[in-house]
């Protein structure tokens, strides 16, 4: 019995897929970013509500980073420059090391994208206000328009409010552009890793089992 158990069994280990929470949050973020980048009007009600939904999805993913299965947890992919450099050396020397979670470069990308999303969401909510307030203020025109009108009325109190809004808008804009850059790098990274290590990188994130 023992010799059978220790005999070299065919090493067909099923390719590890990401769990459903990782997949769903990933693709929800993709859909939300595409929707708000291309289809909704900036500052419109839809744009803002999609932003709130995106915030909830991000929070769910962060919760999953604490309680999810081993490879989805933060501890499985700590942000580490040292590891990323080691990974780069592996790439240069053509060495393949199996990573059960994100590879070290991918891990840095994950944290960069999350931070960027956080900045976009925070600045967006700061501009749009809370739903209760926004709903009271919003007529059929965009939120930003109505807040601008309000700012205009308050103008004699000083220009601070307007400047604040402008600064938030600036942060939102810069963070979003940085996000686009990171997404482009992320896609490039996936293409590169697929060429280097095979289709499993992409298959692991696709919906469905097997």
């Amino acid at each position: 019995m023992t010799e059978i158990a220790s005999a070299p069994t065919p090493a067909h280990r099923p390719a590890r897929r990401w769990d459903p929470v990782v997949k769903l949050t990933h693709w929800s973020v993709v859909i939300a970013v595409i929707a708000n980048a291309l289809f909704t009007e900036e500052g419109s009600g839809t744009h803002v509500w999609i932003g709130y939904a995106l915030a909830a999805i991000l929070v769910l993913r962060l919760l999953w980073g604490l309680i999810g299965p081993a490879e989805a947890r933060f501890t499985a992919f700590p942000p580490s420059i040292g590891r990323a450099l080691a990974h780069l050396r592996d790439i240069r020397s053509g060495r393949h090391v199996e990573h059960r979670s994100h590879n070290p470069l991918g891990a840095l990308m994950v944290y960069a994208i999350w931070s960027c999303l956080g900045a976009v969401i925070a600045s967006g909510i700061a501009m749009a206000g809370l739903p209760g307030q926004a709903r009271n203020e919003r007529s059929d025109t965009a939120v930003s328009a109505s807040t601008e009108i309000e700012r205009g009325e308050d103008a004699d109190e000083g220009d601070e409010g307007g400047e604040e809004e402008g600064a938030l808008g600036e942060i939102h804009e810069v963070a979003v552009n940085l996000l686009y850059l990171l997404i482009a790098l992320h896609v490039a990274g996936v293409v590169f890793e697929t060429r280097r290590s095979g289709r499993e990188v992409v298959l692991a994130m696709l919906p469905g089992q097997r």
Partner: peptide, 24 residues
């Protein structure tokens, strides 16, 4: 997962709504 994700979205909406109402 889908149910929990929808719950998370609903929870956030409620929290923001509640925060808005509290301020108002």
């Amino acid at each position: 997962t889908m149910v929990v994700a929808m719950q998370a979205v609903a929870a956030l909406f409620f929290i923001l709504d509640l925060a808005g109402d509290l301020l108002a």
